[in-house]
Design a protein around this nucleic acid. Sequence first.
DNA 1: CTGTTAGCGCCTTCAC
DNA 2: GTGAAGGCGCTAACAG
Lengths: 345, 345
Amino acid sequence: MPDAPVTLSQVAREAGVSLATASRAINGSATRSVREDLRERVLETARRLGYSPDPSAQAMARGRTTALGLVVHDIADPYFSTIAAGVADAAEREGLIVTLASTQHRPDRELAFVELARRQRSRAIILAGSRLVPAGEDGAAHDAALRDSLTAFRDAGGGVATIGQALGDLPVVEIDNAGGAGALARALHDAGYRRFGVLAGPARLRTAADRTAGFREALVELGCAASDDDVVPGEFTRDGGYNAMSALLDRAGGPPEAVFAVNDVMAVGAMAAVRDAGLSVPGDVAVAGFDDIHTLRDVAPRLTTVRIPLDEIGALATRLALGRAGDEPAPVRGEVVLRDSTPLR
Amino acid sequence: MPDAPVTLSQVAREAGVSLATASRAINGSATRSVREDLRERVLETARRLGYSPDPSAQAMARGRTTALGLVVHDIADPYFSTIAAGVADAAEREGLIVTLASTQHRPDRELAFVELARRQRSRAIILAGSRLVPAGEDGAAHDAALRDSLTAFRDAGGGVATIGQALGDLPVVEIDNAGGAGALARALHDAGYRRFGVLAGPARLRTAADRTAGFREALVELGCAASDDDVVPGEFTRDGGYNAMSALLDRAGGPPEAVFAVNDVMAVGAMAAVRDAGLSVPGDVAVAGFDDIHTLRDVAPRLTTVRIPLDEIGALATRLALGRAGDEPAPVRGEVVLRDSTPLR
DNA sequence: CTGTTAGCGCCTTCAC
DNA sequence: GTGAAGGCGCTAACAG
C-alpha cells in the first residue's frame, strides 16, 4: 500500500486548526507562538498520522535548504574520508543533511558541483580538495571560476569554507603544509639524515607543491639541499608512491638516506617499492609521510609522519561555514611524529 | 552583488517565450515537443543567464527528488568509503545527488536517516552497514523497523538496495562472508596451518558473525576446530584488532599458528599487537584479514585477505536500487589472496 | 493568538 | 506547437 505521505494540511484538518497554526505548532515560529493546548493537539495528531515535513517544500517556502554540500577529490582516499567523517558528524549536530560530491580529481566536476549546490540553495558548501598551482595553464582559471562561484554563493547568504589553502578571501581552515614539511625535514636532520629524496606528488596540486617546497626549503637552510633529480613527481596515490620510489631507486648513485613522501598513502606505496627492490625500510632507505592517516599508522615499520587532525578539521570547517566558529581559525600546524621508519641514524 | 539565482521565468521572458515552452525546451517533455529554433533560443539565453533548475522546485513539481541516500556506519572506515566511492560514481552517471549519512554505528540514527530519506522522497536509498544478529535483544526489533520503513519506501515508488545481507525481501547485493571466510580457512589449512585463532569483531554484527562462523565451520570440517577460547570478540576497528590480539597472546598455551581477523583494519591492529608483544608476523603468528582494502594492501608483511570488490559493489547496489541492474545479482564471492603474512608452513 | 492568503520555482494538464 | 493556469507542501506576511 503506497501510503502517500501525509501532509501538513491533513494534520491541520484532522486536528481542527488552520494550516498556519499547524505549521507554527510543529516548526515553531520566530514571531508568532501558539496556545499550549492547541500545540499539544497538533503535535499529537501529527505523531498519530506519522507526519513529517517535506524538506523540498520547506526549502521552497523558506528559500533555503537544510543541505550542506561537501566536495572532495576522492572519497575513497582516507585523507578525504576522514575529513568527511568530521563534517558528517558536525553537520548532523546542526541538523543538516550532507550531500557528497567525489570529483575524482576532475576540476570541472568540482565546479559543476559547486554550481549545483549553489542553485540548490544549500546552506553551506565545504570545499576540501587542494587548490591548483597557479602556474598550471588552466589551474588559475579554474580556481578563479571556483572562487567566483563560491563568492557569489556566499554573497547570496550561503556559508562557505575551504580546507587546505585559501581561495580568494573565502573562509578557510588552512593547513600549514609547508611548515609541517619543514619541521619534518628538521626533525629528520636532527635524527642524523643528510641525503634526502622527495616523492613530490602531482605538481599541479598546491597541497603537494607546498609540502615539497616546505621540505626543500628547510633542507636548503640545513645545508643539505635536495637536487631536482632527487625530487620525483607522481600521483597522490599508493601507486604514485610506488612508481616514484622505484624511479628514485633506479637512479644512478644509489638511494637517498631518507625519502619524504608528501602523503602517507604514497609513503606506503613507496615502502612497498623499496621492499620489492630487495631493499629494506629503514635499513637501506628511511621513509616518512604526511597526514598520519589512522589506518596507516600501523604499517611496519611504523611510519614517521606529520599529524594533521583531519576529522577535527572537517568539523571545524563545518562550523566555520555555518558561522559558528567565531574568528577565522589559525592555520593548523601539523605535528611531527617520529616512528620506526626513520630511526636515529 | 548577491545575484539571486535566475529562474526559469526570467529565461522565458528574456527569450520571449512562455514559461511552459521554456520548461519543455530545457527539460524535454514526454508529450509535447518544441520547435527547433525556439528551443535553440531558449537554450541559448539559459546558458547566457547562467540558468540552472532549482532541484527543490523540480522535486515539488514532479513529486520526486533527484537525491540518493547512502547510509553507512562510519565513512572514515575504508570499507565504507570504498563503497561510497562506487556509489558516488554510479550516482553521478545517473544524474543523482548523493546524500550521505554516517551513523557512527548507532542503529537509531540509521533508522532516523532512512525515515528522513523517505519523507524527503529520495529517489533511492542504499543501506551499506551490516545487519544485526537476530539474537541481540533489540537487534531483531531494529532490523524489523528498518525493513518496514524501507519496504514502505519502496512500495511508494522509491528504489532500495542493501549491501551485505538481505533485509526482508528487499533488493540486496549479498556478500558471501561465510563462504569467503571458509575458503580462507581451507587455503590456510592447505598452507600448513593447524591451530587457529579468530578476532571475531562485534558479536552483534551479522557481517562479523558470518565471517567468524564460516571460518570456524570450515575448521571443523578440516578437523582442526578452534575452541571458544581461541575466538576473541572486539570492535571492528584497528584498536579492536589490537586489543583482541593482545588478549589472545596473553592466554596460557602460547599463540595460535594463524589468526584470522574478520576485517583488514582489525588485522593491521592485530599485527601491531604482535609486534608490540615482541613477536613477529608471520614468524610467531601468521595473520589474515578480510576485504582487501586497497590502502592496506602494502602493510608489511603483505596481508593475506579475502578480496571483496567494494567499489563495484557500491556501483552495483546503485544500479540495483535504480532498477538498472536486471535481475537480483548473485552473491559476491570473495577471492582468497594469499600474501606474505601467511607463508607456506 | 489564530486564520486567510499569497507565493517559492517548476511541471503539466488543459485550451488554443 | 504554444500559452495560460492550477497546484505540489509549506512558510510568512497580512488581517482579524
